[in-house]
Design a protein around this nucleic acid. Structure first.
Length: 154
DNA sequence: GCCAACGTTGGC
DNA sequence: GCCAACGTTGGC
């Protein structure tokens, strides 16, 4: 089993929104970066995911979700009305993928970016490197456990 | 709103 | 294939 971190802007779609979805499940669409896409394609059902809130008052990790559907074509790439439409995407060979993600838990304590920066154990995290813009990234099991513990989950 | 970092685009 | 220009991300 692998661990990942997914970024989302909570004003657009938050962990609380995921919790309210039917089946508490959502297709994680709109990823339009090749490196992030390749990580999505490497995900497997059962993988654990940290949900990170970005571009908001207090950026940080809100809680945990899990992968319930492996990578498949992101239909929004073919939809001219979608903000994620990609005129270069071909049906025969879809350019962009998504995974289906299901809500697991909201942290009793929100783990802010500042909290994480204060942890020596998290020093090496890609999320914390300056100018990091990747919206999907792998997390080591130790980092995952550490952040979950900071969030107040066992 | 500013600005640094980074990915993408496009001219050559 | 290089690289400058440009657009976007995202913290502050």
């Amino acid at each position: 089993m692998q661990h990942w971190l997914l970024k989302t802007e909570p004003d657009t779609f938050s962990l609380a929104d995921l919790e309210k979805r039917p089946g508490q499940t959502e297709p994680w669409n709109g990823v339009r970066n090749y490196q992030a896409r390749n990580f999505l394609r490497a995900m497997q059902v059962g993988d654990q995911v940290l949900i990170y809130h970005s571009s908001c008052e207090v950026p940080g990790v809100a809680g945990v979700a899990e992968v319930v559907g492996a990578a498949r074509a992101d239909e929004t790439q073919f939809d001219p009305k979608s903000e994620f439409f990609d005129p270069g995407a071909k049906r025969e060979n879809p350019r962009w993928s998504l995974v289906d993600v299901r809500f697991v838990a909201t942290f009793p304590k929100f783990v802010s970016l500042t909290d994480m920066r204060a942890q020596p154990a998290l020093k090496g995290m890609r999320l914390l490197s300056p100018g990091n813009r990747l919206s999907v990234m792998p997390i080591s099991p130790a980092e995952f456990r550490k952040i979950r513990a900071l969030g107040g989950l066992k």
